[in-house]
């Protein structure tokens, strides 16, 4: 397991635009950012590295967001905070997300200011 700097964030998202923009925003805020374009890449990355925060979509090829959350927090001693960022907005998916152990749920369209505040809060909490 690579010990990466504590402020590294993993973004999992299959929409290229969303991925790049969120990456830019978080980099501007001074975080280290890694990206994964689909579930397979994401599962690989969370297995190899430890992140300060994970921002994930729910519906992606190969593996969905729930699977990534369960992989991250399934049997770790120290939890990694997770924010779900999805266009899936029905109550069921949101409930399911929280049940799975997500710390926050952001629906698209996203307010950038809100995203930054929530990211900051979760990372500061977990220090």
């Amino acid at each position: 397991m690579n010990e990466v700097p504590a402020k590294n964030i993993l973004i999992v998202e299959d929409d290229d635009i969303m991925l790049k923009v969120v990456e830019r925003i978080l980099k501007r805020e001074g975080y280290g950012v890694e990206i994964a374009r689909d579930g397979k890449e994401a599962l690989q990355k969370v297995q190899d590295n430890k992140y300060a925060l994970i921002i994930t979509d729910l519906m992606m090829p190969y593996a969905n967001g729930f699977e990534i959350i369960s992989k991250v927090n399934g049997n770790a001693e120290k939890r990694t905070p997770v924010i779900i960022l999805s266009s899936l907005g029905n109550e069921d998916s949101i409930m399911e997300g929280f049940k799975m152990g997500a710390d926050d749920f952001l629906r698209k369209p996203v307010m950038v200011g809100e995203l930054v505040i929530r990211v900051k809060r979760l990372i500061d909490q977990n220090k």
């Binding site: 579930g39 519906m59 992606m60 090829p61 190969y62 593996a63 969905n64 899936l88 029905n90 069921d92 998916s93």
Partner: peptide, 11 residues
Amino acid sequence: VRSLLTLNYPK
């Protein structure tokens, strides 16, 4: 089965 589980649909 994995591929079926990751189809885009909410319900």
